[in-house]
Design a binder for these strands. Structure first.
Lengths: 157, 157
DNA sequence: TATTGTTATACTCTATAACTATA
DNA sequence: TATAGTTATAGAGTATAACAATA
């Protein structure tokens, strides 16, 4: 994309309040936030027609990969708390993309599974994800992609 | 706004629903989202006492680096739209951390500058950011940090 | 007691639309 | 016409607290 000018800010002063942690562009967290925002925006554009968010697609995908998964299992994989997970599940269930069921093993748990409609939606979503990922990966070599994933994994795992 | 579909992909035909784009853990966007979430949560904990968000700290820092910056200039650097920027500025101004002024050059623009209180808060925040960054960087070598920033920059710039 | 699901609540971020003032 | 700021509105994500049912 295009860059904002940046490029400067003369390292500067010794004024009070100077803890000397450097410039904001050297802060890793700042770049993660901006990169996430850029990815989020492109994702939203790509999925506007499907009316699905990142979280919703991830949930559909994970439920498809793990039939009968409980909400807590989903929450762990997504690094979300129960309440946040509930909100997303409610939305997807309301649209008829997945169904809740009773777990035969544990009366406290519920099973989550995709409906036929949900599976069809996931299929379409995966095509859009492939396009989205191509946009994202276009600026990297395969080795760089692998390295980036490895570095990011060290942060969230 | 652009609908996705078509454009691609018959890498694997056959079975319906099989787009064969691999596993979710090979999706770069998935890892960026999880990493961002992990960083966001740690940031929130670190800044709970200061009651500042990532966005708010970034704005304070950028205003300090660019005195008299206009809201639109800030929006460009933060990759936010005007309305989002307004909300953050209003909050910070309400807390007395920055002030709006009239631009002498352009009657449409306003100048943003930190108050003494804002500068003091930024000083404290930078200490907390240093701690937060140390937590984040602990899992990387210096070379890896530099590489990670370089890769992330290619995404958001 | 601990876990799972649930509901209620609240705040932030994000975005769009429409309006005003200025260029 | 275009830009800058503003206001109103809305949806999504995030989180905490409290509760019921089950283990």
């Amino acid at each position: 994309m295009k860059s904002a000018q940046e490029t400067l800010v003369p390292t500067t002063p010794h004024v009070e309040g100077d803890e000397d942690i450097g410039e904001i562009r050297n802060i890793v967290g700042f770049h993660i936030r901006l990169a996430h925002g850029a990815v989020y925006r492109h994702f939203s554009e790509t999925f506007a027609a499907l009316d699905l968010t990142q979280k919703q697609v991830s949930v559909l995908w994970l439920v498809d990969d793990h039939p009968n998964i409980a909400q807590t299992g989903l929450a762990q994989r997504m690094r979300m708390d129960r309440a946040t997970t509930m909100a997303i599940i409610n939305r997807l269930e309301g649209r008829g993309l997945l169904v809740r069921g009773r777990s035969p093993d544990d009366g406290r748990k519920q099973t989550l599974n995709l409906t036929d409609s949900g599976r069809a939606m996931l299929g379409t979503a995966k095509v859009a994800i492939a396009e989205h990922e191509n946009w994202l990966k276009a600026r990297f070599t395969d080795a760089e992609v692998a390295h980036l994933i490895e570095l990011l994994t060290r942060i969230h795992e």
